[in-house]
Design a protein around this nucleic acid. Structure first.
Lengths: 122, 122
DNA sequence: CAGTATCCTTAAGGATACTG
DNA sequence: CAGTATCCTTAAGGATACTG
């Protein structure tokens, strides 16, 4: 049902940071700057945007504690946790196959460099 | 080991078409135009680019049969098939949760429309 | 049939400065 | 601490015409 809906869900997960942020959220709630430190290379702007997107999709909750200084905690929802499972499988695959893929890429690029022409040259 | 390698593998899967193409390849080999018909909305250019990327990563093989007319078949490799499994889990999750996510989005957008200001207005 | 070559648009994301 | 506001760059992807 509704293949466009499925695609719109995949597009969220397919952005640059969502998968990593979901993994770093894991089981416990995390504060904003804590996440920022855990997700290597993310900017403040993109962390906010990513968290808002996940919150919008009902995958993450945002809890504000009006203390001084302000305290904001992010945590996975129930459906967020079910997504974490499949995302971990994906990251696990990437980890297990990173080396193989890297070798394949190097080989492919070497062949492309050696025979750029359709018909034998040289 | 090598978190950047893992990320580079995730980036391939995270583009617009790879997941869908991998699913459509499934167990049997497919011809180019056959795939083009199966993957709704993809352009010739993007199908070529996506298949090249998958071939480069060692996930897909490209077999040319020099008949007239030309015949080119694409098939998943062994590691491509292991990726298919986890990708199917992801697509399965998206399918199972599409409705829930859609509702969450609608609710989120409604609340954002009603209270755009940090402090109660109007 | 199975592509490649060109041109173009849009939007994702980075950098930086500022704030309740 | 946890953001928002602006500006800018790049690259992903679409449209279209052409080809071995």
């Amino acid at each position: 049902m509704a293949p466009e809906l499925v695609r719109s869900v995949l597009e969220r997960i397919g952005d640059k940071w969502s998968v990593i942020v979901i993994c770093r959220l894991g089981p416990e709630p995390r504060r904003f700057n804590e996440l920022r430190r855990l997700v290597d290379g993310i900017t403040q702007r993109m962390l906010t945007a990513t968290l808002r997107g996940l919150e919008r999709d009902g995958l993450v909750t945002r809890s504000v504690f009006p203390t001084v200084p302000l305290r904001v905690e992010y945590a996975l929802t129930d459906s967020g946790r079910t997504l974490l499972d499949v995302v971990q499988a994906l990251v696990g695959w990437a980890g297990a196959n990173a080396e193989t893929v890297h070798v394949a890429r190097t080989e492919f690029d070497r062949r492309a460099r050696e025979q750029p022409q359709p018909v034998g040259a040289g």
